[in-house]
Design a protein around this nucleic acid. Structure first.
Length: 461
RNA sequence: GUGGGUGUAGCUCAAAGGUAGAGCACCGGACUGUGGCUCCGGACGCUGCGGGUUCGAGUCCCGUCAUCCACCCCA
């Protein structure tokens, strides 16, 4: 027998209250994405390892969870499969594979877990959910704008007000670094350092740049560019691609004025983003009390071509579910009915010989759409009430010997303490009048039925 | 992967080398047809795990695992 019962490192069990909070967020994300015309996609947890390797940069490669080959190869440590690291690369594979069956401008959303062999930290896990939207087939800035708009609307619907969409462009950074005299093979390192300007300051970045092999003069020019907008513009406009990138960013920001993202977008020259497949606009969303980001994305016009040979433009954004949950939980942003869930009615059992009467009542109330829990044993009523209280039941139904003789049921409101007896046949109608907030919760059913089917399959294995 | 903190009852934490405790939660009773409040009682532990020092280790040392924080990186 195992000595401990913790889930594996960086993995979590979700108890009912956790699941309800997650589903509440996922539901809003999905409904918003749907309204923006995105369609659902699901892909397998496992991919062939060559599908994933070489897409995420050096650090990303290291963090891929690999699966040993089965059978005789197992002993050698050889690996042929890996757990997906994100939802973007699988999408690129799907587009390359099913191009003919997909619309010209394929817009999809995907809400599934991904895995990274990272070291767990606050808001960071080894298994976590991403909520991705991507649009395939167009280079128009309208694509970026809709992406940012959809994500902004999700956050607003969840109750976020102070979020910040940071926008930048890979080509802009490339042009700037070239003009500053940073040689091409130092670009990635330089960007990682520059990304830390807020955190470690100018001198810190300068030291890091030099340590990473960027010359003193080039480092100084870079830092000046981030300090002084005219310098930045001058450096960037020295080549054609830089100019076009600047125009692209300007277009995105102007068009976004017509969307829910209005007032939230900031051009952020220092934003770099780690994944290597980005080629154009890059973006990230952050809120004040979280060190990392709530999500990020960008344009990756070359990724699909790595699978199909044919370059198909694409752009996407990914929201991190657990990052959102961390902040929402801390700020208590969940509605009351999501925080405290319980049955509408708990039906008690007065004595063993009246069990069947209690069951009949429970079934009637269920048919009327209420969420009904049967207390399974004929314990004394005090215990049954105590349980109802602990379960957060709104109402308790009692069918004692007196009630059964009179053809009545006693209903007690657990919050107010009021209770009344009424004819057995009038119970459902009465309950509806008593607590109009109770009853059928259509959204709960659909939440569970069409989400995460793949994850539940995985759980069973 | 690097540096640091913390691991004791289900939970939050005491016990400063000498008999492992409290609060909350749990169970039972006061209250044999009514939860929350009160009172009384009960159960609760290989002190993360393995080694070492010592007459004696929850306490000191080494290792290991877990967890948290800061880096690194990221959603």
């Amino acid at each position: 027998m195992p000595s401990h019962t913790h889930p594996a490192r960086g993995m979590r069990d979700f108890l009912p209250d956790d699941v309800r909070r997650r589903q509440y967020v996922i539901d809003i994300v999905r409904r918003t994405y749907e309204r923006y015309g995105f369609e659902p996609l699901e892909t397998p947890a496992l991919e062939n390892i060559e599908t994933l390797t070489g897409k995420y940069g050096e650090e990303g490669n290291r963090l891929i969870f690999k699966v040993l080959r089965r059978g005789e190869h197992e002993a050698s440590g050889e690996t042929d499969l890996a757990l997906r690291y994100d939802l973007t690369v699988p999408l690129a594979r799907v587009v390359a594979e099913h191009r003919a069956q997909l619309p010209k401008f394929f817009k999809r959303y995907q809400i599934q877990p991904v895995w990274r062999a990272d070291r767990p930290a606050r808001g960071r896990f080894r298994e976590f959910f991403q909520c991705d939207v991507d649009a395939i087939g167009s280079t128009s800035p309208v694509v970026e704008v809709e992406m940012i708009a959809a994500v902004s609307e999700v956050l607003q619907s969840l109750g976020f007000t102070g979020f910040d969409v940071q926008l930048n462009h890979r080509e802009l950074l490339t042009a700037m670094l070239n003009a500053a005299g940073v040689c091409a093979d130092r670009h990635t390192d330089a960007l990682v350092s520059i990304d830390k300007l807020d955190k470690i300051g100018q001198d810190g970045v300068r030291a890091e740049l030099v340590a990473r092999g960027v010359g003193d003069a080039a480092a100084a020019t870079c830092l000046q560019a981030f300090e002084d907008k005219p310098t930045f513009d001058r450096l960037v406009s020295q080549d054609e691609r830089g100019k076009k990138a600047a125009e692209n960013i300007a277009a995105i920001m102007a068009l976004a004025e017509a969307t829910p993202a209005k007032g939230h977008i900031n051009f952020t020259p220092r934003l770099a983003r780690g994944l290597s497949y980005y080629t154009g606009a890059i973006m990230e969303i952050s809120v004040p009390d979280l060190a990392g980001s709530l999500g990020g994305g960008g344009r990756y016009d070359g990724l699909i071509g790595m699978f199909s040979g044919e370059n198909i433009p694409a752009c996407g954004f990914s929201l991190g579910l657990e990052r959102i949950l961390v902040v929402m939980t801390e700020r208590q942003m969940f509605p009351a009915d999501v925080q405290a869930s319980g049955p509408d009615v708990l039906v008690t059992i007065f004595a063993a010989d009246s069990r069947i009467e209690s069951l009949r009542l429970a079934e009637d109330l269920r048919a009327a759409g209420f969420r009904v829990e049967m207390y399974p044993e004929a314990d004394k009523l005090g215990k049954q009430f105590k349980y109802a209280s602990a379960r957060n039941a709104a109402l308790v139904a009692i069918l004692g010997s007196d009630e059964i003789v009179r053809g009545e049921v006693t209903i007690k409101n657990m919050k107010s303490g009021e209770q009344s007896s009424l004819p057995r046949t009038a119970v459902a109608e009465h309950l509806r009048g008593l607590r109009p907030d109770l009853g059928p919760r259509t959204d709960l059913g659909s939440r569970t039925s069409d989400l995460g089917s793949r994850t539940s399959d995985l759980d069973k294995q």
